[in-house]
Design a protein around this nucleic acid. Structure first.
Ligand SMILES: [Mn+2]
Ligand SMILES: [Mn+2]
Ligand SMILES: [Zn+2]
Ligand SMILES: [Zn+2]
Lengths: 132, 132
DNA sequence: TCATCGTATTAGAATAAGTCTAAAATTAGA
DNA sequence: TCTAATTTTAGACTTATTCTAATACGATGA
């Protein structure tokens, strides 16, 4: 459970009630919320927060290295508080997004990828989560 | 070099001049064009084709299994005529998208991904193409 | 305590990708 | 050639996101 105020202070971002509400939700979820989902949750703690401030705060957090964006579905960006390397699985039926731990897969370069300087990569998997 | 008219006939899609222009470009490129890029190229062969028809045709091609959509950059969908399994590399500086052959990487499940029924997956890599 | 000034927030306008609509054009078939 | 079905089209609409410019806030120092 990360403390929003401390995190903001450490990043030299003024902790306003709006930012606290955003950070408190988005850094303490294991989901991959869209901006609209963040807005919805942040309003529980700070009912007046605006959409613009949510976008401002999320974009600032990405710039400060507190969040990553993920392109997993058409039409919206998802914000990911899990900053460690990991892969993703998307359930095609429910739309649910799951984190797959980095060490559960091993990627080996069988043919040298000459000319490509890879700075990051991940595996994106789609399918369905087996019901229990 | 695929023949647009034959491809359309095989898929039971009426080959109109507009569709021929779209198919002729998108099935014979190794790029990953956006709808707007397809429109631009299709207009060279059929100058009157509309944006709506380009979208209609591309979506129809996806439904018929002639194209796949790829989510590789924020804000736009890219259409991929390479229907075989492959991975992608995106040059962060130029935005260029490269296909990486399937057998150049080997993905091994080190930890069994219990409960996930994977129907498709790919590795998405980002970085920069080395000059030269 | 108050005034000041830079920072933050806001509503709503603007943008841009993509879809929808309904009228006009084209096509296939009798 | 006539007709009905299919296709195309311009432009309206939707939706995610960014921009704008006016307002509110808040730390600071007199
Ligand atoms: Mn592609
Ligand atoms: Mn958009
Ligand atoms: Zn994640
Ligand atoms: Zn490809």
């Amino acid at each position: 459970m990360k403390d929003a105020i401390s995190v903001l202070r450490e990043c030299h971002i003024q902790p306003t009630p709006q930012r606290i509400a955003v950070v408190d939700y988005v850094l303490n979820t294991r989901a991959h919320p869209s901006a609209d989902e963040v807005l919805e949750h942040a309003r529980k703690k700070c009912p007046t927060v605006s959409r613009a401030t949510v976008y401002n705060t999320l974009n600032l957090m990405v710039k400060k290295g507190l969040l990553k964006t993920q392109l997993l579905k058409e039409g919206t960006v998802f914000f990911d508080p899990n900053m460690g390397k990991h892969h993703h699985f998307i359930d095609n039926e429910t739309g649910d997004i799951y984190d797959i731990p980095w060490d559960h897969l091993q990627i080996t370069e069988k043919e040298r990828l000459k000319g490509f300087e890879i700075s990051e990569y991940q595996v994106i998997m789609r399918g369905r989560r087996k019901k229990k």
